[in-house]
Amino acid sequence: MNKYKTELMVGVFIVLTIGAILLLALKVANQTMTNAGDTYNLYAKFDNIGGLKVRSAVKVGGVTIGRVADIHLDKDDYTPVVTLSISTAYEGFPDTSSVSILTSGLLGEQYVGFQPGFSFDGVEELKDGDYLQDTKSALVLEDLIGQFLFNRGGKDE
């Protein structure tokens, strides 16, 4: 039995496996993005988060600056609290910034749209653990249709 050939081929097999794992890790699951770099947390209360999920993107004008780290219900007033984990590369957003839950395309997934507010004297910067005050909830299709029908009904009378 050719011992050397066996060892060589098993070596090739292992290298291929490692290559495949690397491809899956870096190119497919993008493991580095989520782990690399430090993040800080901001919190936002919404009336309705619609279909937002943990790990949904947080975007400023289409650029991903972070992800949704956690979603839970506030125990006092029963409103959803979303924890946004923002990369420290994007620091110093003004206190007046607002967030809304948007949908990418008609059938696409939902993400958090982040609008940096105006910054002028006396406005503080957002720091780790701060709550964003200005939030806009997700659009729920059923509510929209309901409003539309209600308005039509009102006009006819």
Binding site: L24, K27, A29, A57
Partner: peptide
């Protein structure tokens, strides 16, 4: 092709 894949596929859950 790649970026949507990256934002959808999760390391623990899928791989």
């Amino acid at each position: 092709y790649w970026s949507l894949m990256q934002s959808t596929v999760e390391w623990e859950k899928d791989v």
